[in-house]
């Protein structure tokens, strides 16, 4: 029997956490996302695709940083295109960009607390929320260290802490495991699975093994369009030994991309 993706099994009586119809988003003058249809709900969704597929542009538009150039986009049932009020959606968002900028003189606690303040969390709830977020990413012992003294992996974890400090309903993580050592990546996958039980988590990554280990659903983009969506097991079943890759999932990913490119070339 074919495995069902999270998009197919999610309750249909509730609005989708993320729902895009014919979404177009510009990166500079180019349409990096062009006619994307996507529906995601609770769970951990892995966003895969080759370089230039439009993953980062899609993440930025879902984070409400970039306005859609066309189509429809709703987050948590609210439209976020045109002149919509973005504040209610942004309060329920967590976002870690690919290039994560920070203030080097801040401590981890100050930085996460500052982001909680920007997310308009109640002032009295911020200290406990910050402590919880810092604990969850394993930075308790370094909570009062300045960001400039942290290693790349620790900085990435501080970035994840600021993204989850408001217990977001939609969590967008762009290349979150870059710089993490193998042990930290295992911990991070555990955290992802935990977060995905009651939030919609979208993880953009080049690391197929992260998707295999932590995601309930795979979204494959190419040239700004959705080319495949399903469970990791179903994606792995798409490939065989004739396709390049070090694991069944990588071979499935290669097979789907090749098939899509061949169809597009016809």
């Amino acid at each position: 029997m074919r495995a069902l993706s999270a998009a197919e099994t999610a309750a249909t009586t509730h609005p989708w956490a993320i729902h895009a119809e014919g979404l177009q988003v510009r990166a500079g003058r180019q349409l990096a996302v062009n006619g994307l249809d996507l529906a995601l709900n609770t769970g951990v969704h892995g966003l895969l695709g080759p370089n230039g597929a439009g993953k980062t542009t899609l993440m930025r538009s879902l984070a409400t940083v970039l306005a859609p150039a066309g189509g429809r986009l709703t987050l948590l049932g609210r439209p976020v295109d045109g002149r919509a009020d973005l504040r209610p959606v942004r309060r329920a968002l967590g976002y870690l960009p690919q290039h994560f900028g920070f203030y080097p003189r801040f401590s981890v606690r100050e930085f996460v607390g500052y982001m909680a303040w920007l997310k308009e969390m109640p002032k009295s709830a911020i200290p406990a929320a910050v402590q919880r977020a810092v604990d969850r990413v394993g930075l308790t012992a370094r909570a009062d260290a300045r960001l400039r003294t942290l290693s790349g992996g620790m900085l990435r974890r501080a970035g994840i802490a600021q993204a989850i400090v408001n217990d977001p309903q939609i969590l967008l993580l762009d290349e979150p495991t870059v710089g993490l050592d193998p042990e930290q990546r295992l911990d991070f996958r555990e955290l992802l699975r935990d977060l995905g039980t009651d939030s919609c988590v979208l993880v953009s990554t080049h690391l197929v093994e992260d998707v295999a280990a932590a995601c309930t659903d795979v979204v494959l983009l190419n040239e700004g369009r959705l080319v495949w969506q399903g469970t990791p097991e179903t994606l792995a079943a798409q490939g065989d030994q004739s396709h390049p890759g070090d694991s069944p999932l990588e071979r499935g990913y290669s097979a789907v991309l090749r098939r899509h490119r061949a169809e597009a070339a016809r």
């Binding site: 930025r60 984070a63 409400t64 940083v65 973005l86 504040r87 209610p88 942004r90 309060r91 968002l93 976002y95 960009p97 290039h99 994560f100 900028g101 920070f102 203030y103 982001m115 303040w117 920007l118 997310k119 308009e120 600021q162």
Partner: peptide, 14 residues
């Protein structure tokens, strides 16, 4: 001028 501009741009205070 702001290293964290993209993080801040996704918050309600942006």
């Amino acid at each position: 001028a702001d290293p964290a501009w993209e993080l801040i741009a996704a918050t309600p205070a942006a």
